[in-house]
Amino acid sequence: MGIIKAVKLCFDYMKYGEDDSKIEKVRAIDDVTLDIKKGDFIAILGHNGSGKSTLAKHMNALLVPTEGTMWVDEIDTSGEEEIWKIRQKAGMVFQNPDNQIIGTVVEEDVGFGPENIGVPTDEIWSRVDDSLSRVGMLKHRKKSPNRLSGGQKQRVAIAGVIAMRPECIVMDEPTAMLDPTGRKDVLRTVHELNEKLGITVILITHYMEEVIGADHVFVMDSGHIVMQGTPREIFTEVDKLKKYRLDVPQVTELAYELRKSGIDIPAGILTREELVEALV
């Protein structure tokens, strides 16, 4: 069993009318089965409203399945008693950088998680130092989060998660509100953590370029997993992706267009080096 495993997971929520009456039951996740290997870099793609964020919240026991089962490091998330253990093992980074930082000073925010799980004071300090330096924010430790850029805030949030010594980080569109520079910094940081610390990363996004470095990609649409495979396998199917309101990186699209016009190049080109290589 992998670090995160779901079997036939379904999740329903109720829509309420203005008079608090139940209008309808909405199935946000429908029969999802997946098994994520420890140490992998996983990307989950899907348009807004495809159910990818709801799925992410199951990995941290913020939501529990209506049907089916979710395990985090072999612990069933529907059990109440181990909930804090699950949340320590699977840390979460959210979309809005402002709405997840609790501390008024960077280092105090990073210490928030360890404080909650009862880590002794001296160790909190060493964990905070270590986490901040890993995300490259050590020199900003005394600053107010309000004075940081979006990308820096997200890196503080990541530091806050790794200070809890998790097995994996689930990131729910961490770059959606960032500018290109911030996006690059955050992505580089996560890849480093994955490579150096072996932390499993689950990155939820709809930026196609961010998927290229992943080991495995899941594509979601209306609560289902509709495609999965390596980035190359996924990006070979340009038309299918577009059907799911997604896209491919510009290089891939250009290669795809050229291939359609009869140029003999391989399918699923991901980088510009590959394309240039194939053409010249």
Binding site: N60, L62, W84, R87, Q88, G91, M92, F94, N99, Q100, I102, F112, G113, N116, I117, G160, V161, M164
Partner: peptide, 9 residues
């Protein structure tokens, strides 16, 4: 939600 995810109880 963020506080809960970071084990605040």
């Amino acid at each position: 939600m963020a506080m809960e995810a970071r084990c605040y109880h």
